[in-house]
Structures are given as C-alpha cells and as structure tokens.
Design a protein around this nucleic acid. Structure first.
Length: 593
RNA sequence: GCCCCAGUGGAGCAGCUAGGAGUGCUCAUCUCCCUGUCAAGGAGAAGGUCGCCGGUUCAAAUCCGGUCUGGGGCGCCA
C-alpha cells in the first residue's frame, strides 16, 4: 500500500517514486496549486497537488486519511522548510486517493492550542495523533524496551503474576472483583505483586522483574492514576548495597541509551537529613531554598509563640527566599495562607531592606535574635525569610517542604526542561528510613514501607523499647522532586518477622489469617532477598518533561477516576449483578436529593 | 471529607475588580478569489439558553448561595 513513511523522506530520496499513506495535517489552497502536509507516525511531508490534474485535491480536508503516489522532488531554493525533518523535499502528487473521510475534528490537532482535558480524553484517539502524544508514547516504548534489555542482560526473568488475587487488609484500598462461582467472595486487583515476587524468591528464581499493571483505589493526583505501571524487581542473596547498585546501573544504562545522557552517581541522602534540609522525603535538589534551623537563635527568646514551641520540644525553621524582600503585603499574606493550608498555625515573614529588618514579629525580637536570625538564615539585603514554628516537628517539615516547592516554581528556581544536560537529572537515593510511623488516629505504630521490610540489625533491639528508633532496610529513588521508586530488603527470618508483627500489634492469628501463605512459604528455606519497584508512568513523564502522568498514558482517567472515552465506570444490568450475587445499595440518580 | 483555580459560538482566550443590548481577538467551518505556501493570504457568511439551579436588582456573563464537571493540592496513597 505504501513504499515509505512520510516523515522519513530526505534528500537521498529525491527522484524516487513513492506511495505514502497518512492524514491531512494542514491544507494550503492557492487555487492553482494545493499544498498538503501529510502526516504519519514518522512525521510530516509536504505534498504538492495540481487541482487541474487531480480535482479530488479540492475535496481534501483536515484529518482525511489519504494515499498519495508521486515523485520526491528537491525543494527550490528559498522554499526549504528548516522546521521539518523532510523540509528539503516535497512530493509532487501523481495521484491521490481518499481512504477515509473525516468530520471536522472537535478540536485542532496542533500544538498551538491547549485543549480542555476532558475533551481530549473523550476523543483520545484524535488527541493521540498530536505530535506531543506521539513523541511521549514513543519515548515510553523506548524506555520500557531499554529497561527490558538491561534486565535481560543481567540474567533476570520476566515472570507474570496474577491480576485476580487476594485482598490485603492494609495499605491502599483494593479494587474488588466479585466471584461468580464463590458467592460472597471477592478477588482483589493487585496493589503490587509484592507477595508473589517474594514467593518467586522462595521458589528459587533469584532475579525476577516485571513491567506490571497495579491498582489502587485512592484519590488521584498529577502523579497518581488508579491503574498504573510498575517496574517490579526482586533479587535473592543480596543486601541493600546490591539492589542499589543494580538499580542505579539500570537507570544509567537506560538514560544513556534513550536520553543520550551519562548520569552522575546518585547521591545518598539519609531520610533525617532530607527532612532537615528540604522538609521532604522526595526533595527536588535542582535548587537551593534549603531549610535553616532557628532553634539556637531563639533558644532564650521572650517571644511568646516561639517560647512555647521550644518549651514543648518543637522546632523553629525558616526558608530564605533571595531577592523577594520587596514583596507587597498582599502577596506575603497569600504565602501565610498557603502555610495555613498546609497545616501551619501561622507563618512569620521577615523582609530585609536598606531600612533594616521588617516583620510583624519584629517588636518581640531582641537585637541578638535579629542578628542571629539574619546570620543563620544567611539572609542579605533584599531577601525574604519565612519562619514556621510548631511544637510538632513534622508539621514544620511539611509546611516548609510544601512552601519550598511552591516558592521555587513561583520565583523561577526550577530549571527548564533540558534533557540533554546531565545536570538537569537530579536523581537521589533516600536511605535509612525509620521503620515505624506513629498513627495518631489509631494510636499504634504503622510501617512506613510495609510489614515485611528488613530491620537494620543495630536498631533491632528498639523493636521492643523505642519503635521510633528502628531503622529499616528500605530505600527510595527520587528524581527532580518526584518519588520514582521504593524498595527494601525483606525479612526472611521468621523470628524477626514475629518480633515486627508484635511491635505492630498484630497477633500470630491475625498474621496467619492475613499473610499465612507467605509465612508458610518462609518455613521452607527462604533466601535473603530484596527488591524495588520504580513507577514507569512517573519515569516516562519526567523523561518527557511532562508535569502529569496522563500525558504519557494512552488512555488515562480523570481526577474522579472516570474515563470520558468509554464512559467507565458504568452501571450494569440487574442480571449481571445477580450472577455475581450482588445487589447495589447506591441510590438511583432520580432518588438522590 | 477539605482548600484553591477554571467553565463565554466548534477550539483557544479577553470581557467579570466597578452590573447597563452577546461586545472583542486568534484559529477552525462554509462560499468566492488566488501557482510557492508551510500555523498561507484576501473578501464575505454562518455559528452562542456566557456549565446548571436559585437569589439580589428596574437590569446579571459580571454580585451572592448552591450544584455539576475539569485541573492543582491537603487528607488518603502499607
């Protein structure tokens, strides 16, 4: 049907007769001559048609699917288009055939108009014709392909695990699938293949990976979809260092192959340092705006707010924003509102100008405190210092960590997308996570990672005494402020596992009920093992310079987990429910009030 | 569950702060003109219950309340 792809034509093809198939991208009708930009998966080429010879050319419209035969010709001097890869040539059409007409598209498929996302998703098959989506999905394919090549070269097997599996009571909300043959019972779609990959280790497949769909019924974000793709990986007979080494080498290999960039070694940042410096466990280290600690400066303060925070064992921290000391009051108030929205009781701003220090709190500061504040916060004339104090240290981190990314965006600290620049890619390992997190609502210790996460030996005695001091063998990868991957060395020792369950307040019976099949497996010679699971959607989005993962997913869902293309989720027939032994308690649309 | 932003001919925007006739811009669509454009150009035309419901007012795209949808965030996401 065709001899070449339109976007592939180059000067070397001049003189050859070609047949091309594709879509009418744009039409420029000059009366006596008509230019068509013909688009296919490889790109655009200009086709020149003489309507006197080919009257059908008059009928061509946007997005008609057509076939053209003709000769590749050199463009005359002065008519070369440097913006196109095919810009040195054009195709003189000898014949044209309309394969399929098109209605006028509901939106324009150019890169000059941002289109409402709901409309894009409803007509996703048209949206995907756009250049940026074609590029993103191509990049996604190339990245996944390079990942598979890497693991293949390292002796990993790709092994599939079930989609219909058992509900897990902890973690994210499950998507459930009712069983027809087992009335009243449900499968769950996997939140991750976590337990299966551990069983594969017990089974002796000591290097496993899988590009796998996972499902979590939680609210959506720019970097979260209800179904998403993970690069799931697990290894036996390894310690943390081995997993970090192979994972880092994988990213370097993939980036070199696909992005053409040699990545620097990933820095390793202990969790506690990350929180102290950035107020986040997924810091964007492409810019400064680091947190400074003002506890010392105000150690003897008389200012009541700070005094009570320090007396309660809290923290006073600040961010210095260079050059923003002249911000109008209204915008300072907006930052205070942002801080409150993030959970702060308040925020104290301090501006430094030639007239000195200005702040709503200034009258409560001593001269020594003013001096100490300026020095410790490394502020100079023209700067803005934002101070958050709270008796709960994690609130201070959360507020300043949240403000830091907002301020960086607003005041232009975030570097522009520059994929060919190795310095643009700020990967980092976050290591030495605490094992436990105090759950205020339930008044118990919860795992930060998951219940099978290994314990750093030196800190194991704290399991029974001070859970907050237990450090886990878990690790994250962050890239430019996004969490890309989480992983851990797992517990393979039954005694250690029951000590951990005990610390979590999970009884033996409960553990057996929930995870019995895994614990049983560990009775039969479980190897030491560990792994990691990077998120493919996030990797691709960052690589493509996108700020949300919908741009790298062919058919994503909206923020309410709705698919405007298919209309999913939909209602189903009573008969269908009956077979599944289900009855809906949802109010019918006309009953709602 | 909560907070913020948006919704105006087919698409993208402006108009809203300070109420006064659906006013404007870019693109698309249709008709006509045009042989070198490349986001072609020129002339003309058609196309809108200003998301929806209610309120205030002599008068609402504009002010107020509610609601729906989309987006960003908090909670949630072992």
């Amino acid at each position: 049907m065709r001899t070449n792809r339109a976007g592939d034509l180059r000067a070397e093809h001049i003189g050859s007769e070609v047949a091309l198939c594709g879509w009418v991208h744009t039409r420029r009708d000059h009366g006596g001559v008509i230019f068509i930009d013909l688009r296919d998966v490889a790109g655009l080429v200009q086709v020149v048609l003489d309507p006197g010879v080919l009257p059908l050319a008059e009928e061509l419209r946007s997005e008609f699917c057509i076939r053209v035969e003709g000769e590749v010709k050199a463009r005359k001097e002065g008519t070369v288009n440097p913006k196109l890869g095919t810009g040195e040539v054009e195709v003189g059409a000898g014949s044209v055939e309309i394969l399929s007409r098109s209605e006028t598209p509901p939106f324009q498929l150019d890169e000059y108009h941002e289109t409402d996302e709901q409309l894009r998703l409803k007509y996703r098959y048209l949206d995907l014709r756009r250049d940026s989506m074609q590029r993103n999905l191509k990049l996604r394919h190339e990245l996944i392909s390079a990942i598979r090549r890497f693991f293949d070269g390292e002796g990993f097997y790709e092994i599939e695990t079930p989609m219909l599996t058992r509900a897990t009571p902890e973690g994210a909300r499950d998507y459930l699938v009712p069983s027809r043959v087992h009335p009243g019972r449900f499968y769950a779609l996997p939140q991750s293949p976590q337990l299966f990959k551990q069983l594969l280790m017990v089974a002796g497949f000591d290097r496993y990976y899988q590009i796998v769909r996972c499902f979590r019924d939680e609210d959506l974000r720019a970097d979260r979809q209800p179904d998403f793709t993970q690069l799931d990986m697990e290894m036996s007979f390894v310690d943390q260092e081995d997993v970090l080494e192979v994972t880092e080498r994988m990213f370097k290999s993939v980036w070199k192959e696909v992005m053409g960039v040699e990545l620097a070694d990933f820095p390793r940042i202990p969790y506690s340092e990350s929180m102290e410096r950035y107020g986040s466990d997924k810091p964007d280290i492409r810019y400064g705006l680091e947190l400074t600690d003002l506890d010392e400066v105000f150690a003897a303060t008389e200012a009541r707010v700070f005094r009570s925070v320090l007396d309660d064992g809290g923290a006073i921290k600040a961010i210095t924003v260079p050059g923003q000391g002249g911000l109008p009051r209204k915008q300072l108030d907006a930052i205070v509102d942002d801080a409150k929205a993030l959970g702060a009781g308040g925020l104290v701003w301090v501006t430094l100008s030639s007239e000195g220090l200005r702040s709503p709190m200034d009258k409560f500061f001593s001269d020594a405190e003013r001096k100490g504040l300026v020095e410790t916060a490394a502020a100079s004339e023209g700067d803005l210092v934002l101070i958050v104090a709270d008796k709960r240290k994690n609130v201070v981190y959360k507020v300043l960590g949240g403000l830091r990314t907002r301020l960086a965006e607003r005041f232009g600290h975030v570097p522009a997308y520059e994929p060919e620049n190795p310095d643009y890619w700020k990967f980092a390992w976050i290591v030495d996570f605490p094992w436990f997190d105090w759950n205020e609502d339930e008044a118990r210790w919860d795992p930060i990672h998951h219940p099978f996460t290994g314990v750093v030996e030196d800190t194991a005695p704290f399991l029974e005494t001070d859970p907050e001091k237990v450090i886990s063998k878990s690790y994250d990868i962050t890239l430019n402020g996004w969490e890309l991957a989480s992983g851990s060395i797992r517990i393979h020792d039954r005694d250690m596992q029951s000590r951990v369950f005990k610390a979590l307040g999970i009884s033996d019976e409960e553990a057996n009920e929930k995870f019995g099949f895994l614990l049983d497996a560990f009775k039969f010679g479980a190897p030491p093992h560990g792994g990691i699971a990077p998120g493919i959607d996030r990797i691709v989005a960052l690589a493509a310079g996108e700020t949300n993962i919908r741009e790298v997913i062919a058919f994503p869902k909206t923020q309410t987990a709705f698919d405007p293309l298919t209309g999913a989720p939909s209602t189903v027939d009573e008969a269908q429910l009956k077979i599944l032994h289900l009855r809906s308690t949802a109010p019918s649309p006309d009953q709602e009030s």
